[in-house]
Amino acid sequence: MASAAVRVPAEADAAAGFRGAMRRLASGVAIITTKGDDGPVGMAATSITSLTMEPPAVLVCINQSAGIHSCLAPGCPIGVNILSRHQRDVSAAFGGAVAREKRFEVGQWVPDRHELPMLDEAQANLTCTVFSMTPFGTHSIVVARVDAVRLSERVEPLIFQDGGYL
């Protein structure tokens, strides 16, 4: 049985149609961390992907209005914490449900070699260095080299789609 297609007019409603299309794309959830002037800062991100294996690198898209954005620059360390299914509370906290200064009180955090907070029990933790930042529209495309990886034995990703978790 075929589903009915909804046609979205070009240009004027392209943004609304695009938002609807992207809500249909399931994504893993990660917490991006770095150092701020007053301590660690972090945000939840679903727009993260592997970029290359040689050298190991990831791509993260970060809204320029996000508090973490002003703390990022080429050469700075960042942490990428890929969440497990049981870490919905961490995702919600870093997605805005908890005030910025209290976010690191949710979940168990341990420092990496750069003193960046890394989430214990995450599926994976990546210690990275920002290589480049390219502005595009409302966001910056951040390319980061992966310097170190810590993996959990279990693979149970936290998946986000259409405003909720699967």
Rank of each mutant, 00 (worst) to 15 (best):
A4V: 10
L166E: 07
M133E: 13
I62F: 03
L51R: 02
G20Y: 10
P74N: 00
A92Q: 09
L166W: 13
G67T: 03
R100S: 05
N125F: 15
R19V: 09
Q87Y: 05
I48W: 01
A15L: 11
A12P: 05
A30S: 09
V90N: 00
R88A: 12
D162C: 07
R100G: 02
S84I: 06
M133S: 13
S65Q: 14
H139M: 01
I68T: 01
D89N: 09
A122H: 06
E121K: 11
I32H: 01
P157M: 09
R145A: 12
E105C: 11
V41Q: 00
P74F: 13
R88M: 12
A10Q: 15
D120G: 12
D89V: 07
L158G: 03
R113V: 14
F104P: 04
A45W: 08
G137H: 04
N81C: 05
V110S: 14
Q161S: 09
P135D: 06
N63Q: 08
G42E: 03
F94C: 00
V155Q: 12
W109I: 00
S47Y: 14
E153H: 10
Y165D: 07
H114Y: 11
H139E: 04
A93V: 02
W109G: 00
T49M: 12
A93C: 01
E105V: 07
T33S: 05
F18R: 10
T34R: 04
S140H: 10
I82K: 02
I62Y: 02
M118R: 15
G42P: 02
D112H: 07
S47E: 05
G28T: 08
V58E: 01
Q64R: 13
D13N: 08
P9T: 03
G67A: 08
V41I: 07
V142G: 06
A148E: 11
V143T: 13
R103T: 00
G96R: 01
V130A: 02
L151F: 15
P9L: 03
E156Y: 10
